[in-house]
Simulated assay, not measured.
Amino acid sequence: MAFRPYENELVGLGQFTLFFGRFFRELHFKSLSGRELLKQCYTLGYRSLPLVTTTGLIMGWVLTIQSRPAMAKFGAESWIPGMVGLSLVREIAPVITALICAGRMASGIGAELGSMRVTEQIDAMEVSAIRPFQYLVITRTLATTLMLPILVLYADAVGLLGGYLGISRHLDLTLGHYLRQVFDSLAFSDLIPAVMKTYCFGFFIGLVGCFKGFHAQGGTESVGRAANEAVVTASLSIFFVDLIAVQLTDLL
């Protein structure tokens, strides 16, 4: 009786665990549709560039402008490039970019697969001896897993440019000198964990979106519900993965 209020959540967690295991059981690269994978990489990755560009530029610009007054009080304005670079690369760019992509990718996948489920297209694929899980779920999850790290690295670069635009208004600093200060403050121990966790971000964005769409039930209203739940759950998973990644990095 104590678990009755959380019965739906526990059932959903169990279904997701089975869905997670099924992904690795059915992951066979030899029978994977390369054309569909490239299509999803283009749709989910390349078409996200305008959104990531805008977000990255604003992140770097705002972070620089907000931190400059506090640093100026201590006469440490020369440390701003290093601080901005370290903050962007290690935490801000990966998490914010992942959240932005979760809003676009997870909702799109959830709505697309949810629509296919309620219109019985997925059932028709199963009857026709087509493996819908591999064609629909695995390709989309691999696409988000592969594309998100690339988008985050791109957001890092754009964010650093935004930081330069923000600081160049107040300091006589060339772009070359600014980048030199940024890279002097960074090490591979900062970059590698930040990149590695973006693979996990991308994996859960794709898998959660596919899970919500694949298990949509009811009429057309369930499509919107699947898209909404996909965004919320994917965003929460990003925070949990980031928490675990930060703890592991701290131990190392």
Rank of each mutant, 00 (worst) to 15 (best):
S87D: 09
V89S: 07
S67D: 04
M83P: 04
A70I: 01
P81A: 14
A106R: 10
G82A: 00
T97D: 01
I92C: 07
T97C: 12
P94V: 04
F74H: 10
F74P: 03
I96N: 04
L88T: 01
G82I: 01
I96D: 07
G75D: 04
G114K: 11
I96E: 02
E77V: 07
R104F: 09
P81Q: 15
R90Q: 02
W79K: 00
A111K: 00
K73S: 09
I109S: 06
L113N: 13
G114T: 15
I96M: 14
P94Q: 06
A76P: 06
S107D: 01
L88Q: 08
A70R: 07
L88I: 09
S67K: 10
P81S: 15
E91W: 12
V89G: 02
I92S: 07
L113G: 05
A93G: 06
G85I: 14
G85Q: 02
A93F: 13
R104N: 09
R68V: 09
S107F: 12
M105C: 14
L88P: 10
M71R: 06
I65M: 12
A98K: 07
S67V: 15
G82F: 06
R104A: 11
C101W: 06
A98R: 07
V84G: 13
K73L: 06
L88R: 12
I96Q: 11
P81H: 09
L88C: 04
S67T: 15
G114C: 13
G110F: 04
I96F: 15
V84Q: 07
Q66C: 04
A102K: 00
A98M: 09
L99G: 13
P81V: 08
F74K: 06
E77A: 06
A76K: 01
M105R: 03
A76E: 00
G114L: 14
E77F: 06
